[in-house]
Structures are given as C-alpha cells and as structure tokens.
Design a protein around this nucleic acid. Sequence first.
RNA 1: GGGCCGUUAGCUCAGUUGGCUAGAGCACUUGACUUUUAAUCAAGGGGUCCCGGGUUCGACCCCCGGACGGCCUACCA
Length: 481
Amino acid sequence: MSEAETNNEYREQRLANLAALEEMGYPPYGAAFERTGSLAELRESFEEERPVSAAARLSTVRDMGKSIFADLRDGSDRFQVYVQKKAIGEDAFKAFKLLDLGDQVGVEGELFVTRTGEPTIKVSKWTLLSKAILPPPEKFHGLKDVEMRYRQRYLDLVGNPEVRELFNKRSALIREIRHYLAERGFIEVETPMLQSQAGGAAAKPFVTHYGALGSDVYMRIAPELYLKRLLVGGFDKVFELNRNFRNEGLDRTHNPEFTMLEIYEAFSDVNGMRELIQGMIIHVAETVFGTLSVGEGDTALDLTPPWREATYHELIREKMGDDWFDLSLEEARTKAEASGLDPDPAWDTLMVTHEVYEKTIEPALQQPTFVTRLPAQLVPLAKACPDDPSLVDVFELVIRGQEVAPAYTEMNDPIEQRRRFMEQAGDDATKIDQDFVTALEHGMPPAGGMGVGIDRLMMILSGAEAIRDVILFPQLKQKSE
RNA sequence: GGGCCGUUAGCUCAGUUGGCUAGAGCACUUGACUUUUAAUCAAGGGGUCCCGGGUUCGACCCCCGGACGGCCUACCA
C-alpha cells in the first residue's frame, strides 16, 4: 500500500494548488503559529467581537461565490470560519480557494454569531501552515476500513472523533493510576526489558541478540523478579507501568506487546492488594469515565463496592456440584465432557478442574469478582495459605469474564522458591533465575504484589470489544509483495 | 495452526444466474451564487472490480493457488 507514491488525480491537483499558492506568496509548510487556544477553548470562551486566532485542519468548505464558510477541526472540536472577499482582499480570497480539505491553516479575525446562531470567526487574515497532498477520508461516514484504521491510525483519529476521545481517556486512565499510587507513597521504577532470563510468567519470550556481548537476550514477559529485588533492596512500595512482550497468538484480547502495571508493597499481603485495586479501579472509573456502571442490559457492569469474593473451590462446586472434589479422575472427566469440554486424556484432576474454571466459570463472571485460594501448583510465585498448604494466598480479579489483576501474598522463602522453580523448569538449573533466588536469600520482606493488565482494564471501562481498539498501533501482519 | 467470511473509484457502499460503455453518495474538475453548516444548482473527469493461474466465444462474477483483514477455534500463569 504505497498510495503516497500513487499518481492519482487528487495528489496531482493538490500539488498544482501547492505550487500556485507558493507562487502567490503562501509557503506551503509554515512555521509556529500563535493561537488564542484550541477550538474547544474558543467555543468555551466565546465572546462576540473578540479578536482571536486559531489553527487547525480544514474539514469542510461551503463556497458561496464572494464569501466562503469553512469548518476547522482540531483534536478538541470543530469551529466555523467565514471568509469574505471584501474583508480579506481579492488576492487572499483567490488563494484561499486553492486550499484543499485536510490542509492545516491559521486564521485571525473576530468572533461573531451568524444568522443561524453558529459561533464563527470572521477572518481578516489567513496563513497556510501545512499543505495536505493526499485527501482525507470521507467526511460523513468517517474511516470504516478496519485495516486502514489500524495501519494508518492517524486517519482514524482525524476522521473519527470517538476514537480520539477513547485514547484521550486511555491517557487520563494512566495518569490517574500514577496519581493514585503516588498519593499512597508508591514510587515508579524502571526495570530491564532486555533480560537474560525471561522470568516472572510462563509465556514464550521474544529473543533478540545483543551484539556487543555476543549473547542472546530476551524481551521481558514480566518485570516481577526485578521488582522483588527492589523489595530486598529496601524500596517498600514500588510499581512499574510499562510494556511486556509475549511471543504468543494474536486475538481479540491479546497483543504481543501490552501494558502491564505491577505493584509490590512490603509488609502487606493479598488483602492489602485487594483494597488497593478496588480503590484504584473505582478511582479511575469515577475520574476518567465519570461513572461506576458500564454498558446496559445483560452485560451491564456495576463497579459499586464491595465486590464479590469467592474461593476457587466454591466457584467450582457452584458450577459442577458439591461432590466435585470427591470424584475420581474418570468421573470428573466424564462430568466435564458433559459440560461440553474436551479434557486431554493426559490431564490429572487438577488440570481438568482448571479447564472447567477457565472455559466455563471465568468467562461467566461478569461483575467484579475476587477469586481466591487457588491450587498451589498453578501459582509458583505465591505463598501458601496458612491453613492449607495445597492452596496459595492469592486472588484473581475477574471482570467481564476477563482476568484483570492477579495478586499474591508473595513467596519470600528462598528454599521453597528454588524448589518450585526447579519443579517448573524440569530440574534444569540453567533455566532458573539464580540471581533472583540469591536476592531472596538475602531476605525479602513479606509482601503483597499484583499485576494489572492496563489494556484489558481499558477495554472493560470503555466497553471496547477488542484489545486493538484500545492500543494505538496494534500488531498487524506486514504486507508482502 | 485449523474453519468460515470479506477485499469493487481517494473514502463509504450498491451490483452482475458469466455478456457488450461496472453504478451511487461524498471527494475532485469547470461554471453560478455574500449567512452556509453533510450548503445548493448545472456540467464533467475518475476503475488492475486484492494478486497470480485456470475454465470459457467471453470472467469483476465460476475453479485452483496466494496476500491482507474480520469472526470463530487452538495456543497463551
């Protein structure tokens, strides 16, 4: 798609207009331009006969012969300008007619209200700021082609104001999260994205090569093991809000690079994390979206606290019957199959149970739910429940069927941690992060920790159906010739 | 990775049981118009019907292969 190179009538016409404007003394790519404010600010502070200047993209033109109405559009609003031949002179008027939709222009003039009640700038002088050589997308329907919307997101943003609004909200959400955590004494840190061991989760990493060291390095799949090192170092409230990379499939809820917030608090535990995340999500819902309810009808979401809390076992029993955990493997498998699942013959009871959870229970948890006390085998970096060593002291916050935030009372026993790593790595000591275990051996305080998928949180709060709708430039395949 | 669906003008979309010059709206060009706002009116130009191959007297349409996208599915702490 090299349409910039395509010779089409639009481009040629616009280049001809550019040349003509240049000839008339309008350099096509102007310099800084002093504006009274954004178009939204002009509208808010409207006052008749006030002299103002504005700069924005030309979005529609209504040519009446000796006068022209045109709309300017910027990231904030639309505003009408009125250009009169008599007012700006014959040459400037003639030149204005050489403008094309999409051109960036600056105008100076006086505010007034038209006969039909439209706030308008009566232009006394105009400046060309940037000539658009390619035409904008269709003005009424906007840009629909999803592929172009993602590949040329700038066109999506120009043509579809609701998209721009969504990304404004994403920015506000991130700002409010940082604000919320800073207010509670957390400091933001930056830990390596290039790691020699990709730890902290169990996903396939991207591998790249570091030439100067002559060795392969991995893009991080999680910052967890570095943040915990900082707990050892005495930072007692830390968070990192940045990208993780996972070399896995691409679908409606997965992008290979995604934004993760990880939070660790020394001397706290999973209960502290529960208070923190509930308060944080309510805070951003209120400040950014102005409401604790999202959507309507069957899928309406209500974030009013307190949120439901249920143990993993309770949810399983609720769905599969009180006797589920007394069943033999065969009986469990049969019952799972009766629920429409297809358990792998090699699986044990734990795996069959987890399949039931992931396929039938989690997706059905519409309202915010803290799922607690998960089987220890599923979570190697969490501490066991004091009353039951087969369970870990964790929660997974599920909203709208999606896992938004897993939180743990963190494992800080170096001996137990090494044992679990070895188990996970199939006893291959080269695959475990020895430096991390060494850090634990120096003594990590008891702590609560949590990861929050920011893209998914954004999807939930905005009602977006696909992760690529909340990521400015989602991963797409490269076009090959 | 597998299945289904889609790709027609710059954009948004019609359409053809396989037929002769492939349509509309916006956009563009020319003309008219000093309060319009998806301005209006008149005239006009614009197409590799995603790409490659096949069948056919004839393919945008049917068949095979491919690219890209969407949905579902699989994988994914």
